[in-house]
């Protein structure tokens, strides 16, 4: 691969100047129960202060997804990538922060506009066995939402056929039920269901992780074809760096609820800045390296219930120094269209 110096003026017209579809500003999402009424009552009368168990699944994330791009979101289990995907898809509200739809706050939109905006973003789930109603036929699964939202002009049967064909399924199967299909075909049903409401933005959450290798390639190809045909924008959530590298224009790396690095796909894979990104790239098994010796990153993902102070990665980081233990690094520009949250960049 030829390494190019990406001067800002080269990048501007292609990526940076495109219309933002979704913008997140300081978005956080916490889970957990605040202290019970009884505990609060006891506290008020001098009892021990009860500790709420709160998980910061997503912790003040700023992120922009622009029209027509594929943004890859990478991280290990528990890092909050699925929660962030759900917030962007509009099926889970953030605990704090703002979500902007085409530059406008969701709270500013009229209920009607908000409904329309939500419909424009659809989600494809990881598990094609759990995300389809087992008692509904394919025609019902795909046809229900567009019928309710009055998106069908003309015959519903023909409309459903078109969606199925676009997702690579034979329309003659539409009276069948999900259990009669293989994993790859079910994922196609999920894709047809999402496409049926004419979205412009798909959030794919580990959408190929449960599929066999030979089927994975078929579904990835389908995503790429649809992107071209329908001018779709994607948030592609995956733990598989190979898949993300292949599909994405830009990549964001998450660790313990925070985005630690974000850049164009070329930048991330040729000049990773954050030590965590570097470790991920180092350890990904590649077919090209036979009988390699693995050298493992020490330690495990800390519990999000008790994140380490300072930089969340410092207990595992080979280059951590004193400041990393005290101060959370902010996500800052390190090059054109390349942001990283690491104190080492100040040294």
């Amino acid at each position: 691969m030829v390494e190019q110096a990406l001067a800002p003026e080269v990048l501007e017209p292609t990526v940076a100047n495109r219309q933002p579809v979704i913008t997140l500003r300081g978005v956080s999402r916490t889970f957990g129960t605040p202290p019970s009424a009884l505990a609060r009552f006891a506290e008020r009368f001098g009892g021990a202060k009860s500790k709420p168990t709160i998980v910061h699944a997503v912790d003040s994330v700023d992120l922009t997804v622009r029209k027509g791009e594929v943004l890859g979101l990478v991280g290990e289990s528990g890092c909050g990538k699925s929660t962030l995907g759900r917030i962007i898809a509009g099926i889970m509200p953030p605990s704090s922060g703002e979500v902007l739809w085409r530059g406008r706050r969701l709270s500013e939109l009229s209920p009607r506009e908000r409904r329309a905006a939500k419909l424009r973003i659809q989600m494809i789930f990881q598990n094609p066995f759990a995300s389809l109603n087992p008692r509904a036929s394919v025609a019902e699964i795909v046809g229900e939402a567009p019928r309710i939202h009055h998106l069908i002009e003309g015959d519903e049967g023909a409309y459903v056929d078109e969606q199925l064909r676009r997702a690579g399924l034979d329309p003659s199967f539409k009276s069948r039920f999900p259990h009669q299909f293989s994993g790859g075909q079910r994922q196609r049903i999920g894709i047809a269901r999402a496409l049926a409401v004419q979205p412009e933005f798909l959030v794919c959450d580990e959408a190929v992780a449960a599929l066999d290798v030979s089927i994975q390639a078929q579904i990835l190809n389908l995503f790429m074809d649809l992107r071209e045909q329908l001018d779709l924008t994607y948030l592609f959530i995956s733990h598989d760096l190979g898949v993300v590298e292949h599909l994405s224009d830009r990549v964001a790396i998450m660790y313990l609820g925070r985005i630690v690095e974000e850049a164009t796909v070329e930048e991330i894979f040729s000049r990773p800045n954050h030590p965590y990104t570097q470790a991920l790239l180092e350890e990904i098994p590649r077919i090209e390296t036979q009988k390699r010796a693995y050298t493992a990153l020490k330690g495990e993902l800390p519990s999000p219930l008790a994140p380490p102070p300072g930089c969340p990665f410092h207990p595992r980081c080979p280059n951590a120094f004193d400041r990393c233990k005290m101060e959370k690094p902010a996500l800052r520009d390190v090059a054109a269209d390349h942001r990283s949250a690491c104190h080492l960049n100040d040294r």
Binding site: E76, S77, H239, L241, A279, L280, E283, I284, P285, A293, Y294, T295, A296, L297, E300, L301
Partner: peptide
């Protein structure tokens, strides 16, 4: 397992 944990086990 996650990528970094997988690498540890493989090692």
């Amino acid at each position: 397992l996650d990528v970094t944990i997988q690498a540890q086990i493989l090692a």
